[in-house]
């Protein structure tokens, strides 16, 4: 951190320094993500492995090149960009053409992180910025899903993976529908068991709720992740969908389905908890989590798209500075009324 941030920091006491650095936290996050990535490779085979590698590499390379272009020291050593890259890869459909993966990786780092000033200054979660750009630029490719547990998946690539840059992908394999799309467009619910263990189609890293929760729990126990964010999201989603499901079970899927389908798990545990783009206070993060949950439920039920976690998180990222202002703690020694003036 001190390499980048050369400004003098003035803080109130206590001045206790904890022996925890950016690298430490980031390395732990990588450990927490590895099982998720591993399961993605197990589910989707070689296609996912290649896609995840390209996603991570494109982010790391972009960071390195952009740092150098700007005359700064390269910051790839602190692992943070590796996580961004890995997370970014986990949000993509496994069969996405590699050239699109690389374009999105560059956008994620350039637009999502670098233009705002690099590590510690990003307003939005960079991985989601990259994904949102791809979703807007290539909507068809981003919603074509590689089937899960296909035969011979460890030895063959999806036909679309190696598409020549700037060319339209041609899909050879039969494509699978995600549980959310099946629900929204065909009213077909998926069994809860399949959802929890991840025996479904979808983005590379979003299928297995179990591994995501395990990774999140590991980080939360080590105090490297604010557990209030995912807790607030899950509680609100469960509550809202529970109420709506009770009113009209035909149209609104139940809480179990809403919690374990789509990118909610991955988003709530690993995306919404981005340390930079979240509010600072504990009260703030709870408001932030509730906001994400409400938006997600609204987009999923009433929006034109089957999945809304990505947009919900990006929106809440933008709101987090304002949430901070809303719940600013009173400075010790000042009166309550005096706060209004600031």
């Amino acid at each position: 951190m001190s390499k980048i941030n050369k400004t003098l920091e003035i803080r109130t006491s206590p001045h206790i320094v904890r022996g925890l650095s950016t690298d430490d936290i980031m390395r732990n996050v990588v450990w927490a993500l590895l099982p998720v990535a591993g399961f993605a490779v197990y589910t989707f085979g070689l296609t996912a492995l290649v896609m995840l590698s390209v996603a991570t590499l494109s982010c790391v390379l972009s960071e390195h090149i952009l740092c150098r272009l700007n005359g700064r020291e390269s910051t790839i050593g602190d692992w943070s960009i590796t996580i961004t890259g890995l997370l970014y890869g986990l949000t993509l459909p496994p069969g996405l053409p590699l050239w699109m993966v690389a374009v999105g990786g560059f956008i994620a780092v350039g637009l999502g992180k670098f233009l705002f000033g690099g590590l510690g200054y990003n307003v939005f979660n960079p991985a989601l910025v990259g994904r949102a750009f791809l979703q807007a630029a290539f909507p068809v490719a981003m919603t074509t899903w590689h089937p899960a547990f296909a035969d011979g998946r460890f030895f063959s690539l999806d036909g679309a993976t190696l598409t020549v840059p700037f060319m339209e992908p041609v899909y050879t394999a039969v494509t699978g529908a995600t549980p959310l799309a099946a629900m929204k467009f065909a009213q077909q619910p998926t069994a809860a068991y399949d959802l929890v263990f991840g025996f479904t189609s979808g983005s590379a890293g979003e299928t297995s709720a179990l591994f995501i929760l395990a990774g999140g729990a590991y980080l939360a126990v080590r105090n490297m992740l604010n557990w209030r964010i995912p807790a607030a999201i899950f509680a609100t989603v469960a509550l809202l969908s529970g109420i709506l499901h009770a009113i009209d079970p035909q149209h609104y899927a139940g809480p179990m389905f809403m919690l374990f389908s789509g990118g909610l798990m991955l988003g709530a545990v690993f995306m919404a908890t981005d340390m930079v783009a979240t509010p600072l206070t504990n009260r703030g993060v709870i408001i932030y989590g509730v906001l994400i949950a409400v938006l997600t439920v609204m987009i999923r039920y009433w929006g034109g798209l089957p999945e809304g976690v990505m947009y919900a998180i990006l929106f809440a990222n933008a709101a987090s500075r304002h949430i901070d202002r809303l719940v600013q703690p009173r400075v010790y020694g000042t009166l309550k009324q005096a706060k209004r003036g600031s």
Binding site: F133, A136, A137, F138, A141, F166, M167, E168, P169
Partner: peptide
Amino acid sequence: SGTIFGIGLFPDGFQSWVVMILPG
């Protein structure tokens, strides 16, 4: 659209970046 002033630049099967034609 993969064109410049209406003249195609790429062989068939160009993947257009939809977002670029939209106001975004």
